[in-house]
Design a protein around this nucleic acid. Structure first.
Lengths: 160, 160
DNA sequence: GGCGCTTTGTTGAAATTTGAAAGAGTGGTA
DNA sequence: TACCACTCTTTCAAATTTCAACAAAGCGCC
């Protein structure tokens, strides 16, 4: 009933948020230095490379990247200029468009992946034992599921 | 020796990063809706409120917030305009300046804290059992410590 | 006391991100 | 068919963030 967190949880929360922030900054820095890609660039390339036809609707991409739509528009334009992706009108729905991975984009991803994975390993994963990995997986998969669900619920107009 | 992550760790990594991103966005949204503060505003107020004399040097503040110096300058200017902090020249070192919490800033923090802590609880902490909290604390305190050390080391000019 | 060299923090321009509004289509329904 | 409400994406302006100088002190050393 109290509004506060017990100090145990407070400490956990603070450690989590600070370390995460540092980690994301460090990974972004590494990625940029080694491959010239942004973290968003990389993540987007991964998503496209795994999609059937190596293409995704803008909306789908935005939601997976947790990007505002207009931010994705900008991001795709930038990657298009660099030749990493192409933009195509969507056949089924003429309002929409899809982002398609180019050959150059795939190549860039293939080149960048080992560097990035090494960063992830050295900065994070190598220090975790199996139990810790299992714990993180459980916690964050559950959290992600719940946050996705919350968001879907709040965007549905049936919040009478 | 291979550059990749085993699929267990890869899944863990992906879950962690996506959920974290969603969480940060959600918390920011809640905070803004309930208090008009940004996550950075709030964090900065917390740091000042805990500092001796409720004041901190710009550099110290920047490093704790994981902000670039120029970003902190902008952030402080904005909060100064809103009356939440004041900027004072530093007595010991005339190059420097310090940010000081104002009465209004403290009041704002006191009002915002319960809301924010409730968000943190409902979105994250309430779903974790004690073992999970302990695991997160251990993992992220270790990680934060290591990343801070790495950064200090790389900024030291003795990387012969 | 005067030089170089480093540290602190700010500035200004460019790049990115947000937020509101517009454009173009879809789908249901009268 | 015509209309209305809604969805998908882009556009534009404003706010924020980065990046590359820069000014102003400190600091050691001759």
């Amino acid at each position: 009933m109290t509004e506060s967190l017990d100090s145990e949880r407070m400490a956990s929360w603070r450690a989590y948020i600070e370390a995460s922030q540092r980690l994301f900054i460090q990974l972004e820095e590494d990625l940029r230095a080694e491959t010239g890609l942004t973290f968003a660039d990389y993540h987007l390339l991964v998503l496209l490379s795994e999609a059937p036809g190596q293409r995704l609707r803008m909306g789908e991409l935005a939601s997976r990247l947790v990007f505002l739509p207009s931010r994705l528009t900008y991001q795709i334009s930038s990657m298009q200029r660099r030749g990493l992706v192409a933009r195509q009108p969507c056949p089924e729905d003429r309002r929409g468009s899809e982002a398609v991975l180019t050959a150059a984009g795939l190549l860039t991803l293939r080149e960048a992946a080992p560097h990035h994975l090494r960063s992830v390993r050295t900065h994070l994963m190598d220090d975790l034992d199996d139990a810790e990995v299992a714990c993180l997986t459980r916690v964050f998969e559950r959290l992600g599921r719940r946050l996705r669900a919350d968001r879907d619920a709040s965007s549905t107009p049936d919040n009478k």
